[in-house]
Amino acid sequence: MTPSAPLRLALVAAAIGAVWGVALPWLGRCPMIVRHVTAMESRDVNPAAMYYTELDRLPLRPSWIEDRVVLWP
């Protein structure tokens, strides 16, 4: 017998709750993940940015680059 729609919804919500409420917080305490997150946070990096306007710092031409690379030969 197929469960009713409210029951199916409750099951989906419980699955999402288990993954996001228990599994991911637990994973977030693993040393490898902690190192990655700490490194990103300390450098103010937003790895989830889809486009450059979503970055915490706009990627403008680095001040040192003209000393190292010929930009317009």
Binding site: M40, V45, N46, A49, M50, L55, P59
Partner: peptide, 10 residues
């Protein structure tokens, strides 16, 4: 993705 580029580059 832009964010991943910055993360890997940094």
């Amino acid at each position: 993705a832009t964010g991943a580029v910055v993360a890997a580059g940094e």
